[in-house]
Structures are given as structure tokens and as C-alpha cells.
Design a protein around this nucleic acid. Structure first.
Lengths: 358, 358
DNA sequence: CTGTTAGCGCCTTCAA
DNA sequence: TTGAAGGCGCTAACAG
């Protein structure tokens, strides 16, 4: 910390011009003589001068920073999304301010007042240009009044894009994941393979992601077979939950012939539990997952799952947010997202391993 | 975007006082009459007023923001560290600006000029108070001259803490991971179980993490047995690399009786490859890992590995950075980090499953 | 094409 | 205990 960054004033002095001229070359204004421009650029380079974003923000009211609020960055679903958003944001010259609220995951923190509400305050202070909410409180079936108020207030000052299911009474922009299509696709796959006795495991109850998926699961299943509520085990989104679910089903002696798992981690936990009971997937039971995580192709068995195309999600979310940064109008057209895609591997017991895509 | 945040000036007007008085209550200055203080606080609450961090930063030269530069946030090692740092940083009222350089991982970007150097520029603009570098270019055996210059320049303006191995010629503060101890521990474990024919898989060549671990591995192995260079396969840090390594060893017909994998993901890929060749771990070959990732306990087999106590790392890194934020002196005492810890599970073939910790 | 001036929102002297 | 004034580094009119 010996050096300090120079100011525009010092660059002006060393270049023998006024600060406005320096400011002009900084902002690529055409109305600067080549001679002075070159001189100034030289001085800028010599001194490794970087204009202060803080001062610029002061004037422009833009920080070129986007906030991401995520409940658990140890969950691959969120990191996938974050790294995707970050990549595209950087290309548009935005930086990412990350808020990991820990409202999910191993280190889940329980407080009477939601952490997210306090995060909203920090974000307001920081004056980011826009905000992504990737999950957390917003996914709850019953939103608290205080959360709703805080979120709407936030959104009235800074545009918020939520990647998740639409919530009544929330004024943010929502990017829908089309959960229904994905579950339907994969359940149908099991049905087509001949399975009729199908259960569902994983996912926190009272959370929209869970309820929507379970609802769609029941809908499609009931068309061809019957739903057995006992084999629907909702707990949480992690490997431990898949493990626990299988344990429960086996202990109650109601293990079905096939299971839809909330995501790959739940499926992983399920595999492990089966192994502990000397059962195996897919021989004894087929297990598929609604949400693809990395390494699905390296598990044993390789996991048949749904690719929700998070890459698209991130793209759409960013485009949407960037749009609302500049205007309060309605986004003209819905951007195209790829539909969730069934990826058939081994865990479903299908013989069509590899290649086959629906 | 109907509302806008009020300014201190408006709060002053609505409270019937001057802006300096408002500023005083904002900063908990004692010299304000209770009457005015209460009036002002009421107005602040009514209007959900949040002072502008940007304006404050303009004056204080502090943004209360820390940057994290990581090469691949899809890698659990980095997310672990990030979420840990974020948690502690938040408690000290710092926000995290995340830079995912993508210099590692599936989407690895190759450019002649390092992305990190351009990230350094963004960071300089943003005027963060301090910087963490979690990996990436800094881990290379041969640092480019341009990178070195850029990093040292950065560090001369903003304090940088690197979580990684010390590099000659770099002026940042380093937090060492004690890689040697971990590998030694786990190799010794294999040796104690009676294995003599032990290989090493995973890890990018020419990267310090790799070279240090391989070096330590060879050192301890050569004390009890002999090193076979052919069974040391260095490629990268992911599941695909474990897979590829096993494939190679089998095809060359030199699969050893035991392997040390760079991390759990490499081990996972190795398991998968073994299965494809109708071999299994630990029956046919023992595989252990140097770096624990989440879910090690849910893999089949459960992975015997080393817990590098990343929690500690984050803690020490943050404390160090916070210290150097305020002073240029030398940190008085080395903070204690837990030593890497051997966690015995199933993949080593040990009968002492569970419980046993060294 | 160039320089002067007036803020952006806040903190910090300095007087009162 | 309070208010007025100046300045943080930069941009954006406005004159020249």
C-alpha cells in the first residue's frame, strides 16, 4: 500500500490540460484534438491511472454493479446460475455483488426476522443497479407480510428479477423455470418404460419448487396409474434427504419400483442408501431426477435427469434486468428459453443408454 | 422504479434541522440533543431512508467491499471458501464482489493475456478495500512477467491476500494450506494398510497445488516403497480427469493396487471408470483423496479423504485481510489453523469404517 | 476544441 | 449542541 491511485486532477496537471479535457478522453468524446488526446493517454498509461468508479457513480447514479441474492452457493444449481450470470454480466461491464443468505443448505440459519430483509438493506445502501433473486424466501408458499413489503419496496427503487415461480402480490419480474414440463417429461419416461408404482423424494415442503413439481408429478401419474401419498417423501434438497427418504421407505416396507428425485443430489443420497440396504439402482428400483447437476454422468449409476437449461435462464434473466435498468416499460417479447430436456442415462433402467434425447 | 431514495438533505428539511445534524445521528455522534435525534430518527424510519454508500465512500475512501477472485465457482473447493468468507465478512459489515475468472473448469477460457489481469483493472476501478485471490494464475509454477507486475501493482494500492502456496517475487500475503501434511497423512494411511504399489491421479501439471502434493507423495512413498512415475497421471481437477486416468492405467495395464486422487471429484470419476471396467473400489483397488468435498459420505464407496479445514482458511484469510486494511505493519502472530485431518471411510479398504480419526 | 463552474450525497472542519 | 462551508473525484452544461 505504498502507491495511491491518481485523480483526474493530477492527470490533468501532468498533461498540461484541464480536467474536463481529461474527462473527455476518458469518455471517448470526439471533441479533443489528437495531440492532446495522445498526450493524455500517455500520461494515463504511465501512471496506471484508473478513474474512480465511486466518483463516477456519484454523478451518474449508476454503479455498474448487479446484486445476486442466493440462499446457498454450495448448491450446484445456484453456482451454475451465478457463474452464468457473472459471465454475461462481465461482458456487459457489470460486476457482481454476491449475497449468500444461507437460508438453505447445511448451515441453514434460522432467525425470526429473515436474513434476506437485512440483505435488502445492505443492497439499498450499496446502490446496485439491479438485483437477481435466485431463491430463498421468495420460493415460500406463504410469504410473510414483512418480507413482501420489504421486497416490493426494494423493487420500487431498484429493479429486481426473480428466477423462480411467480408469486401473487410481488411486483418483481419473474423468470419462470417451467418446472411442470420437466417433471412431466421425466415421469412420462418412467411410465413409458412400464413403471406404475412411482414415488417422489426430496424437496422442502411449502416451497413452490416442491409443490409445483409434486403437483405436476401427481397429475401425470394419475393419468396412467394411481398416486400413493405414502411414497411421496418431502424433506429437503440435499443428498442426506435422498438417503433419509430411502431409509424411511424401506423401513416402512413401501419402497416403490421407481422414484422421481427432486435433483441429482437427492438421487445420489438415494443410491447410497440403497447400497447400504444391499439394493441397487436400476436393478431393484429406478431413480430419475428433475434437476441436473454437474457430474450426473460420473455417478454410479449415471443419472437419468432433466436438463433445465440454466444457461438460458441466466441469459434471459440478465437481458430482462438490463432492459428494466433503462426503462419502466414492459419487455416487448418473451425471450426464447429452451424447454427442459430429458437426458436418458442409466438410473432409469432404460436400455437406451446414451444418445437418445426427447 | 417509482420511488427514489431520499438524500440527507431531504431528511434534514423534513426534520427541520441542518444536514450536519442528520449526519451526526447517522454516525452516532453523541453531540445531538435527544429531542432532535428522536425527531430525525423518526423521519428516517418513516421514509426508509438509507444513506448512500457511494457518497460515503467518496469521503471515507472506504467502500466496505471485498473482492474475491476465483477461477471456477462451480468447483466446491472454491464455493466452500467463498461462502465461508462471505459469512464472516458480512458479520464485519463487508460485502463481497465476486470475480469468477473461468480460468479453470469446464468452460476454461484461454486467452493470450490473462483474464485475471483485466479483472485487476475492474477491481481497481471499483475501489474495493481488500482482495482475496483463491487460485488461478497465482498457482502456476511459472508466473508471467505481466501477471506479476499487475498483481504487485494491485497489491501496492489495495491489500491482497492469497489463499495458496507462497510465490517468490509476489508481495501479497499468503495463507498456506499445508498441502504437504495432508498428502503425507493419507499416503501414510495407505502404507499402513499394507499397500506398496501406489499411484497418484488428477491435478493439472505445472500448478503448485499439484507439484507440491506430488512431491510430498513421492517423498513419503519412497521411504517405504518405490515410486513408479508411470502411475502418476496428472491432467486436471475434475471427475472427467479421474475417469480418464483410470482408463489410461487400465489400457496400459499398469493399474496399481492403490491410488491417491487429487480430490473427491477426481476420485468420483475414478470410481465411475472402474465400474465401466467391471472393477470396484476398494475390492480391486483402494482410492483416497487429498481434498474433501461435500457429499464424500454419500458416494459409493464413501471416500476416505483429507479434510483441509477450509473453514479455518477462510477465517484466517479474512482476519489477515482486515488487519492489513488498517495498517501496513506485519501481522503479529500466526493464527492457528487446524492441521489437515484424515477421515477414514470406505474407499481405502480399511475395516475401520467410521469413527476412527487420526 | 477547450476551460470554468456547479453540483452528485455525504462528512468534517470551523464558528457560533 | 448546532449550522455553514468546503471538498471527496468526476461529469455535464455553459462559455469562449
Amino acid at each position: 500500500m505504498t502507491h495511491k491511485n491518481l485523480t483526474i486532477k493530477e492527470i490533468a496537471q501532468r498533461s498540461g490540460v484541464s480536467i474536463s479535457t481529461v474527462s473527455r478522453v476518458l469518455n471517448n468524446s470526439p471533441s479533443v484534438s489528437n495531440e492532446k488526446r495522445e498526450k493524455i493517454q500517455a500520461v494515463i498509461h504511465e501512471n496506471d491511472y484508473q478513474p474512480s468508479m465511486v466518483a463516477r457513480s456519484m454523478v451518474s447514479k449508476r454503479t455498474h454493479t448487479l446484486a445476486i441474492i442466493a440462499p446457498d452457493i454450495n448448491n450446484p444449481y445456484f453456482t451454475d446460475l451465478i457463474s452464468e450470470i457473472e459471465l454475461i454480466a462481465n461482458q456487459s461491464n457489470y460486476s457482481i455483488l454476491l449475497f449468500n443468505t444461507m437460508s438453505a443448505g447445511n448451515r441453514k440459519v434460522e432467525t425470526k426476522d429473515s436474513i434476506e430483509i437485512s440483505v435488502f438493506k445492505s443492497i439499498l445502501e450499496k446502490q446496485v443497479d439491479g438485483i437477481f433473486i435466485l431463491g430463498g424466501d421468495i420460493d415460500k408458499e406463504d410469504l410473510s407480510e414483512s418480507y413482501l413489503t420489504a421486497l416490493n419496496h426494494l423493487n420500487s427503487i431498484i429493479p429486481v428479477v426473480v428466477i423462480g415461480q411467480y408469486q401473487n402480490g410481488v411486483n418483481c419480474h419473474f423468470i419462470d423455470r417451467n418446472l411442470k414440463y420437466g417433471v412431466t417429461l421425466i415421469t412420462q419416461h418412467l411410465l413409458s418404460l412400464g413403471y406404475r408404482d412411482i414415488g417422489f423424494i426430496g424437496g422442502e415442503p411449502k416451497i413452490k419448487i416442491t409443490t409445483e413439481r409434486v403437483k405436476a408429478f401427481k397429475e401425470i401419474l394419475s393419468l396412467y396409474s394411481s398416486v400413493n401419498e405414502e411414497t411421496i417423501i418431502l424433506n429437503d434438497y440435499y443428498a442426506k434427504d435422498g438417503y433419509q427418504a430411502i431409509k424411511l421407505l424401506i423401513e416402512k416396507n413401501i419402497l416403490p419400483k421407481a422414484l422421481v428425485a427432486m435433483n441429482d443430489q437427492v438421487a445420489l443420497g438415494a443410491f447410497r442408501a440403497l447400497n447400504d440396504y444391499h439394493l441397487s439402482c436400476p436393478e431393484d428400483i429406478a431413480i430419475v431426477s428433475c434437476d441436473a447437476f454437474p457430474d450426473a454422468d460420473f455417478q454410479t449409476p449415471r443419472i437419468t435427469n432433466v436438463n433445465q437449461h440454466n444457461h438460458d435462464l441466466a441469459q434471459v434473466a440478465l437481458t430482462t434486468l438490463l432492459f428494466y435498468l433503462d426503462t419502466t416499460e414492459i419487455l416487448p417479447e418473451n425471450m426464447s428459453q429452451h424447454l427442459p430436456e430429458l437426458v436418458i442415462r442409466e438410473s432409469c433402467g432404460s436400455k437406451n443408454i446414451g444418445g437418445l434425447k426427447l
